[in-house]
């Protein structure tokens, strides 16, 4: 069945090779379970790219592949003109930072010590803490507003504070490409906005290229400058500027959710408003929307 999303999907066009980070013809799989095939994406330099899609469509898997955490079965991820797999791990970590979905703060560690761990790719056995390390860590903590917390234990912080500490750690890596895997999960709405505002600042003021996996479509449209919309099965349904690609047809096609797309009264970006329950059941029976953990 041809779907409206296909018309604007840029999968057919081959990625422009001059961007710093792009993936070509990826087959992604965990053990035997194939998550995606023939996946090609391009991360425009200087963009705030947001990957969205239904649960278990392979969003996080794609992000992991882009960060070299998952080795693609076929195809390759290119970073700065070379296959990412040809770099040494430390070299990748100096070019590209990743905030995974689950990070463990060692018990009893202070905020400053945790952020300092972000300097690892720049340190050596006998060069453990240079004044540059100190300056970068201080600056990262200042940017994320956690400098005054530096002596506190991470265990004692609130969820929002903790997420800002993790962001500071990734910033201390000093990479201009940042990949964030669901940075807003487990946060209440105010803290979600706080973290996303911070990301937007990093994007605008520091000219960082950001790639984030987000669940909330409206947040994705509001903050993202470039969207990658994935379908279950790891297929790209559309990619491009949110205002240009997000339509009610696309959302219904990808998420199976009848809705209206209006202009966000605050920002003018697309705002997805699900149809009323009654109206939906009249249209085409009940729509099952499962909220399970994503891959």
């Amino acid at each position: 069945m041809p779907s409206p999303g296909d018309a604007i999907a840029s999968r057919a066009e081959s990625p422009k090779k001059q961007t710093r980070l792009y993936a070509e013809d990826l087959t992604l799989a965990y053990e035997q379970a194939v998550v995606a095939t023939d996946l090609s994406v391009e991360i425009p330099d200087g963009s705030f790219t947001v990957i969205i899609g239904p649960n278990a469509c392979g969003k996080s898997t794609l992000l992991k592949a882009l960060a070299r955490m998952l080795k693609p079965k076929t195809g390759g991820v290119h970073l700065d003109g070379k296959l990412i797999s040809s770099y040494r791990s430390r070299e990748v970590a100096r070019r590209l930072g990743l905030l995974p979905q689950t990070s463990i703060a060692p018990s009893g560690i202070t905020v400053g010590d945790l952020v300092a761990r972000g300097r690892y790719p720049h340190q050596k056995l006998l060069r453990q803490w240079s004044s540059e390390d100190e300056a970068v860590v201080t600056e990262s903590m200042k940017l994320t507003g956690v400098l005054e917390l530096s002596g506190r234990l991470v265990d004692e912080l609130s969820g929002g504070q903790r997420q800002r500490v993790w962001l500071a750690m990734v910033l201390a890596q000093q990479t201009s490409i940042l990949l964030l895997d669901e940075p807003t999960t487990f946060l209440d709405i105010a803290h979600q906005v706080e973290v996303l505002d911070l990301c937007a600042d990093l994007h605008e003021d520091k000219q960082h290229t950001l790639v984030a996996v987000l669940h909330d479509l409206n947040q994705a449209c509001r903050y993202g400058t470039h969207l990658i919309v994935m379908r279950p099965g790891g297929e790209i349904a559309a990619q491009g500027n949110p205002s240009e690609i997000i339509t009610a047809e696309l959302v219904e096609d990808v998420f199976g959710l009848p809705c209206r797309v209006i202009d966000d009264p605050e920002t003018g970006t697309p705002l997805i408003v699900p149809n009323a329950r009654k109206k939906r059941s009249e249209d085409d029976g009940p729509v099952a929307v499962h909220e399970h953990a994503t891959l």
């Binding site: 040494r88 791990s89 970590a93 100096r94 990743l98 463990i104 761990r117 690892y120 056995l125």
Partner: peptide, 23 residues
């Protein structure tokens, strides 16, 4: 001892350690 710095980084979880360039 040489690898103990990597060990300390692995406390953050394998994903974080890998992302920070730990083999």
């Amino acid at each position: 001892l040489y690898h103990s710095r990597a060990l300390a980084m692995m406390e953050l979880g394998d994903d974080s350690a890998k992302a920070l360039g730990v083999g």
